[in-house]
């Protein structure tokens, strides 16, 4: 599955996406190395979430090519990309609200397993699923609400569950869309802790508004502005970039 050494985990080549006359993503070229910690920043409407949707396959790019581990996936559907190791969370939490927390995680565990088609044997009798789901719940501090319906747990727990779902399938590339959004200060601290403990072999692409978080978490930063890449490089290069200073960072670093 994984490409030869030196092959980037994800590569976007001149990817664009137009909605009518609006160029939401405009000629973006981007490389994410295996195990990278990579942040995408930019003001609202810069095209960050659209970029994520293109990477995860929610909709195809209008032009350009997407490569995962050296394989062209431009035409693949979301579930096919997930099978190749792409997982994501959502800016607005997407859970299975009427299912219990454990069932949410079990579903995610089964997603890339052939036994998801097993019809006449209860899921609870699949010990390895239960075990893995249990470990994820422990890791994301959700064990105490395991039998609650997802819609009844706290917002912070829902955000953690969202990340746990994404991780259940052992992804090689994790797309995190503002995981901190809307969290209280203690919850943010907890979430940061969780993110820092992620398996270093997973490449993480993070959309984040909070510059402190972005610059402390990611070694590499891409700045999007009106759909275009304004700057791309190490965090020091980017924070020193004049264009970025002017267009975006000026004064609002501590927003």
């Amino acid at each position: 599955m994984s490409g030869s050494p030196g092959t980037p985990c994800l590569q976007l080549e001149r990817v664009s996406r137009h909605f009518g006359g609006l160029k939401a993503v405009d000629d973006v070229t981007l490389t994410v190395e295996p195990g990278a910690r990579h942040a995408v920043i930019g003001p609202n409407g810069a095209g960050k979430t659209t970029l994520f949707n293109i990477i995860s396959g929610e909709f195809p790019p209008s032009s350009g090519a997407i490569t995962l581990d050296g394989r062209n996936v431009t035409k693949l559907k979301p579930h096919q990309r997930a099978a190749l190791g792409v997982a994501r969370t959502f800016q607005i939490t997407r859970l299975f609200p009427e299912l219990s927390v454990i069932d949410n995680v079990l579903l995610a565990c089964a997603a890339l397993d052939r036994r998801k088609f097993t019809m006449f044997r209860p899921l609870s009798s699949h010990g390895d699923f239960m075990e893995r789901a249990g470990r994820l719940l422990d890791q994301f501090e959700l064990s105490n609400v395991r039998d609650e319906r997802a819609r009844h747990i706290s917002y912070g727990a829902q955000r953690r569950l969202d990340v746990a779902l994404a991780l259940a399938g052992h992804p090689r590339l994790l797309l995190l869309d503002e995981p901190m959004a809307g969290l209280s200060t203690p919850e943010r601290v907890a979430m940061r802790g969780l993110l820092e403990q992620l398996d270093p072999s997973i490449a993480v692409l993070l959309i984040e508004h909070d510059m402190d978080v972005a610059f402390s978490f990611a070694a590499r930063v891409t700045v999007l502005h009106q759909g275009k890449v304004l700057a791309d490089g190490s965090r020091d290069e980017v924070s020193a970039n004049e264009l970025v200073q002017q267009a975006y960072l000026g004064g609002s670093v501590n927003s």
Binding site: A82, R88, L107, A111, F117, T118
Partner: peptide, 19 residues
């Protein structure tokens, strides 16, 4: 069953199931 749970997942949030 695992399959049965996937059906409920579709009912609850189909795009998330795809991703």
């Amino acid at each position: 069953s695992p399959f049965g749970l996937t059906l409920q997942g579709i009912r609850e949030h189909e795009p998330r199931m795809r991703s």
